[in-house]
Simulated assay, not measured.
Amino acid sequence: MMWGGAHGWWGGLGMILFWGLIIAVAVFVFRMLTSNRIGETRDAMKILKERYARGEIDEEEFLRRKQQLQG
């Protein structure tokens, strides 16, 4: 009887893949539950600064909106 034959290799590989999949799903679920992406609230001034830095708005628009946000 060959206990360590070809079936043993496939069984071991299958077990590694099975546990790898279980761990990957657990990590994915954990990240989704602890993520702030859903319902995330970001500071308006920070968003404004990011848009200005990326060049989406010019200086005049930035200053106008900054003034509106500050008061």
Rank of each mutant, 00 (worst) to 15 (best):
G12W: 01
E56H: 07
A44W: 00
M1W: 05
M32L: 14
T34L: 03
I16K: 14
K66W: 00
A53P: 00
G12S: 14
F18E: 03
V25M: 13
R31H: 05
F18I: 05
G20T: 05
M2D: 11
R42W: 00
G11V: 05
W3E: 12
E40T: 08
I22V: 15
G5I: 10
G8C: 11
K46S: 08
L13F: 15
Q67C: 11
L63Q: 15
I23H: 05
Q68N: 15
I23L: 12
K49M: 09
D43G: 05
A6W: 01
T34I: 09
R64G: 12
D58S: 11
I22Y: 01
G14M: 12
G39H: 03
Q68R: 12
D58Y: 07
A26S: 13
G71A: 15
A53N: 14
W9P: 00
K46P: 00
G8A: 15
D43C: 06
M45H: 03
R37E: 01
M2Q: 14
M45E: 10
I23K: 08
D58W: 03
A6Q: 07
Q67H: 15
R31F: 03
I57F: 02
L33S: 08
E50A: 15
W10I: 13
W3M: 14
E40M: 12
G4H: 08
W19I: 08
F28V: 04
R42V: 13
H7M: 10
L48Y: 07
Q68H: 12
M1E: 14
M15N: 09
Q70R: 15
G12F: 05
E60M: 08
A53G: 10
W9D: 04
K66H: 03
V27H: 00
R37L: 00
M15D: 06
R42T: 13
E56W: 12
D58E: 03
I23W: 01
R51G: 07
A26R: 10
M2H: 13
M15P: 00
A6M: 04
K46G: 08
G39E: 12
A44H: 01
D43F: 07
G14R: 10
V29H: 07
A24V: 15
K66P: 01
L13P: 03
M2F: 09
M32I: 11
W9L: 13
T34M: 06
L17T: 04
A53T: 10
L21A: 14
F62Q: 01
A53F: 06
S35T: 02
R54E: 00
S35V: 00
Y52H: 11
D43W: 06
L63T: 15
R42E: 09
G55W: 04
W9M: 09
R64D: 12
A6E: 07
V27L: 06
T34N: 09
A44I: 02
E40Y: 10
R31Y: 03
D43L: 09
T41M: 07
Q70S: 13
Q67M: 15
Y52G: 05
G71L: 13
M2K: 13
A53V: 12
G8E: 11
G4N: 14
E56V: 15
E56S: 14
E59D: 08
Q67I: 14
R37F: 01
M2P: 03
M15G: 04
F28E: 00
M32K: 13
G39Y: 02
W10R: 11
I38Y: 04
G39L: 11
D43Y: 02
W3R: 09
R42A: 15
L13T: 09
R64H: 04
